[in-house]
Design a protein around this nucleic acid. Sequence first.
DNA 1: CTGCCGAGC
DNA 2: GCTCGGCAG
Length: 268
Amino acid sequence: MNRKTKYALISGLILFAIFCVRWYLIESALVPVETGTTIITDSDRAFFLPTSTTNQVVHHNTYSLSYSERHEQAEWVAYELKKSHLSSTNHKRPYFEIDKSVITEAAHWRNFKNSGYDKGHLCPAGDRRFSKEAHDETFLTSNISPQNHDFNSGIWNRLEQKVRYWARKYDGVFVITGGVLKGNMDAIGVEGVSVPNQFYKVLINRNNETTKMIAFLMPHKDSKKPLYEFVVSVDEVEALTGIDFFPKLDDAIEHNLEASNSYKGWSF
DNA sequence: CTGCCGAGC
DNA sequence: GCTCGGCAG
C-alpha cells in the first residue's frame, strides 16, 4: 500500500468516525439540532418559541416543532395565528408525508393505519387555509399525534375553533400545542408512536402594552363540559411536560402570567 | 370543522 | 400506488 492510499484510507476512517459520533449525539439528543425549510430570525415566532427537551427543533415556513424521537411525534408545535390568516378557502386534503427535516426520521403514517386512532393535527389544517402551501405543510407526520376520533372531532375541535375565534377577536394569538409525552402510554404501529393520555394548548396574546396568556390541559377523551373547565396555569403544563414556554419573556411578566389559572380577558 | 374508508383507475 | 366522493361525529 503506498503512502497516498494509506492517507486516503485513514482520513476516510476519521471522517466516518466523526459521522458516527455526530449521529450518536443527535440520536441520543445530547446535542441540539435545528433544521427545517426556513430560518427564523426576528419575529414573534422566534421570541415565543418554547425550549426543547429533546434537542431537536424543526422550523417550517408557517410553524416550528420540537420532535421527540422516542415518542415519534412532536412534543410541541408552535405557530402564530394572525387575524389575516383566517380564511374560508377550501383546499383538498393531501396525503401525509414524512417530514424530511426531522433528522432522526419522522414516523410513517402507516403506523396509524388500523390503529383505531385519528391522525390528529397539532397545527390544525383549519388554521393554515390562507394558502395551499401553508395548508399542505400541516400534512407532515411530524405534525400529528394519535387521537381518539371522538376527542379530535369533539372537544379538541371545539378548542381549535375557539382559538380561531380569539385570533379574530384579539387580532392574533400565538399557539403552542402538543400531547403530554409522559407516563404509561399506549403505542401504535411498527415504530411505536406513543398515544398521549393528555393534550395541552398554551396561548399568548400581546397587544400594545398588555400581554395575556391562557393554557388548557385535557384528558384524551371527549367531553361535553365547557372549555373553561379545562383551563390551567402555564406553570402546571410546564411542570407536567418539562417545557419552558416563554423563556424570552421578561421574567417578572412571565412569572405572574404563568402562575395564573384565571381566564379573565379571554371571552368564551 | 374534525376525520375515515371504499371504489375505481 | 393515487384520487374521487360518500359518510360520520
